[in-house]
Design a protein around this nucleic acid. Structure first.
Length: 478
RNA sequence: GGCCCGGUCGCCUAGCGGUCUAGGGCGCUUCCCUUUCAAGGAAGAGGUCAGGGGUUCGAAUCCCCUCCGGGCUACCA
C-alpha cells in the first residue's frame, strides 16, 4: 500500500514551529517511498477560533521551509474537499449513521446543565465527566426531539473493558474504557468535533500513517472507539514528542518566538530551521548532525524517533544557522541578505563585503550592523575606543596621523598594500600592529570589532578612509 | 483529582544485557591560529544514566515501587 500522510493544522494563527516539526516528519515519510503523497488538510471545525489569513501564513511558512505537498485546498486532489468546513454533510451523514447503528446518541443537555453537572461533581470531589443523562432516551423519542430541539451527537462508549494501540513511537498504550466519557462527535452547530472529523477524513482520504503531536495521545482512545463504531481499520499511528520551552512545558508564546514567520524575519535560514528542528526528537544514531532536507528524507526513520520531549535551544539553532550560512555560496548569501539590507545600499559594494562577513554572522539580520560603516556618510567616533589600552590620546593622534600619511599616496589601494603600509607605520612608531589596528579600526569603522581591517579599508576607498582618519585625529586633539 | 506519557552532562542526543573507566554536538573554559571579532584546530570542565528495590555471572539498558516533570481531562484543536 502506498504511503499517504497528512498534516492537518488549524487556521487559528500563524504556523508554530512545533507543527512544522510534525509536518517535517510527515514530509520525510511521504518522500521516502515511491509514490508517497503528502496531504494538507485544514481543520477549521472550531468556527470561534478562526484567524483570518491563517491559511496564507501556513502556506507561506511551509513553502519557505521548502516543503511541498501533493494534495490540499489549493492544489486539489482526488479526496477533496480538503477544508473540513466544506465537508459538513459528510460528517453529518456519518454521525447519523452511528446514531442509527446505536453506536451514538442524541444529547439534548444544555451547556448550562453540563456546567452545573460539572460543578456538582467537582464539589463532591468526583471526576468531572458527562453523566450520560441522554444516553437512554428511547431512540424514537430522541429522533423526534432532534427535529426541533438543539442537540449534539455523542458516542456511546462501552462501560467496561480496555482499548489499546501499538504506537510506532510509544509502543503499546492501553486505556480503561471507564476513563473515557461519551464524547461529543457532532456539535449543535452541525460541525463535527475534531474527534469525529479526523477519523472520518483520515479514513476517507485513505491516510496510511497518522503522525501527530504527543499531546494527541490521550485522546487516541476516543478515535479508536470511533474507528470501531464505523467498523474501519485503524492505520498505524505515531505520536511525536513535544517541542518544549526552557521550563519543560509545551513551547508557547511566552517562551519567545514560536512562529516560523518570526524566525524568517530574524534572519534564520530554512535549511537551518529544518536541520535543527528535525533533530529535536530524532537522531540518526550516528554522530552526524548536519543534514539538508533531502538528506533528512534519506536518513530519517520513525523508529529512531524518541519519546521524551526536547527543549527548544536558541543557542543551538544559532549554531546551525551559522553552519548553513557558511555553506551558502557568496552569490546565494547575497540574495538571501538582500531583504535584510537597506535598499539604497550599493549592491555592488555589498557583494564585495559578503565574503568578509560570511563567517561572522549567526543570522542574516546581523549583517547590517557588521557592514554599516561602509555605507554611513559620517561616523560618530567614540573617544573611548579610539585610544588603545595603555596609550595616550596624543600618541594615538600621532599614530593615526602617520597612518594617514602612509595611506595617502598608496597605489593601488589594495588590502595587501594597506597591510604593508600599516605594518611599516607600526614598526616606525614603535607600536604593535595590534594597537595600531585597534586605533585605525575605531577611526575608520567606528567600532571595536568588524570584518578584516585591511580589506575593509580598501572597500571603503581611500577618500573616505582618509576623511575618517582625520576626523578621529581632530576629535582626539580637541 | 482521574487517565496517559516521560526522566542519560546546563541544552539536543548516542546507547536497545557485556565492546560504557557512558560517546558526539551546542553552550562554557583554556590554548593555538590571528589586525579585531568570527571561523578553524587542540585540550578541558561538566553525567550518583531521577531514587530505591529486584531479575541476571553481568543493567543506563529487563521488571516493580517511589519521586519529579509533562500532556490530556470542552459542543478547542
Amino acid at each position: 500500500m502506498s504511503v499517504r500522510v497528512r498534516f492537518a493544522p488549524s487556521p487559528t494563527g500563524s504556523l508554530h514551529i512545533g507543527s512544522v516539526r510534525t509536518t517535517l516528519y510527515n514530509y520525510f515519510m511521504a518522500r521516502q517511498g515511491e509514490g508517497g503523497k503528502l496531504i494538507l488538510r485544514i481543520e477549521d471545525t472550531d468556527q470561534d477560533r478562526l484567524v483570518p489569513g491563517a491559511i496564507d501564513s501556513i502556506y507561506d511558512g511551509l513553502h519557505w521551509m521548502g516543503i511541498r505537498w501533493d494534495e490540499g485546498p489549493r492544489e486539489g486532489g482526488g479526496y477533496g474537499p480538503y477544508v473540513q468546513s466544506e465537508r459538513l454533510p459528510i460528517y453529518q451523514e456519518h454521525a447519523a449513521r452511528l446514531v442509527t447503528d446505536g453506536a451514538a446518541y442524541f444529547c439534548f443537555c444544555t451547556k448550562e446543565r453540563l456546567e452545573q453537572m460539572r460543578a456538582g461533581q467537582r464539589a463532591r470531589g468526583e471526576i468531572t465527566r458527562y453523566d450520560r443523562h441522554c444516553r437512554n432516551i428511547p431512540a424514537a423519542e430522541a429522533a423526534a426531539r432532534a427535529k426541533s430541539e438543539a442537540h449534539v451527537i455523542r458516542l456511546t462508549v462501552p462501560e467496561d473493558g480496555t482499548i489499546a494501540i501499538d504506537d510506532l513511537v510509544y509502543g503499546h498504550v492501553e486505556w480503561p474504557l471507564r476513563s473515557i466519557e461519551d464524547q461529543v462527535l457532532l456539535k449543535s452547530d452541525g460541525f463535527p468535533t475534531y474527534q469525529l472529523a479526523v477519523v472520518i477524513d483520515d479514513h476517507l482520504m485513505e491516510i496510511s500513517h497518522v503522525f501527530r503531536g504527543e499531546d494527541w495521545l490521550p485522546s487516541t482512545p476516543k478515535h479508536l472507539l470511533v474507528y470501531r463504531a464505523f467498523g474501519w481499520d485503524v492505520p498505524p499511528h505515531a505520536h511525536l514528542p513535544n517541542v518544549l520551552g526552557p521550563d519543560g512545558k509545551k513551547l508557547a508564546k511566552r517562551h519567545g518566538a514560536t512562529k516560523v514567520e518570526e524566525f524568517r524575519t530574524e534572519g534564520y535560514l530554512p535549511e537551518a530551521m529544518t536541520n535543527y528542528l528535525a533533530l529535536i526528537g530524532w537522531s540518526p544514531g550516528t554522530e552526524e548532525e548536519i543534514f539538508s532536507l533531502d538528506e533528512l528524507v534519506q536518513r530519517w526513520r520513525i523508529d529512531q524517533v524518541q519519546r521524551a520531549g526536547g527543549k527548544w535551544d536558541r543557542d543551538r539553532l544559532n549554531y546551525f544557522n551559522g553552519v548553513w550560512i557558511r555553506r551558502l555560496s557568496d552569490d546565494e548569501l547575497l540574495r538571501r541578505l538582500d531583504p535584510f539590507l537597506p535598499a539604497e545600499w550599493d549592491r555592488a559594494l555589498v557583494q564585495q563585503v559578503v565574503p568578509l562577513i560570511k563567517e561572522r554572522m549567526r543570522t542574516l539580520a546581523e549583517a547590517k550592523d557588521l557592514v554599516a560603516f561602509l555605507f554611513a556618510d559620517t561616523l560618530d567616533h567614540d573617544r573611548s575606543i579610539l585610544v588603545p589600552k595603555k596609550k595616550e590620546a596624543h600618541e594615538t593622534v600621532t599614530a593615526l596621523s602617520r597612518s594617514t600619511v602612509a595611506l595617502r599616496f598608496l597605489e593601488p589601494f589594495s588590502a595587501e598594500r594597506i597591510e604593508q603600509a600599516i605594518g611599516a607605520v607600526a614598526a616606525d612608531a614603535g607600536w604593535s600592529v595590534r594597537d595600531l589596528t585597534i586605533a585605525i579600526r575605531a577611526a575608520v569603522t567606528g567600532r571595536k570589532i568588524g570584518p578584516p581591517l585591511y580589506a575593509s579599508i580598501a572597500l571603503l576607498g581611500k577618500d573616505r578612509a582618509l576623511e575618517r582618519l582625520e576626523a578621529a585625529q581632530e576629535l582626539l586633539a580637541a
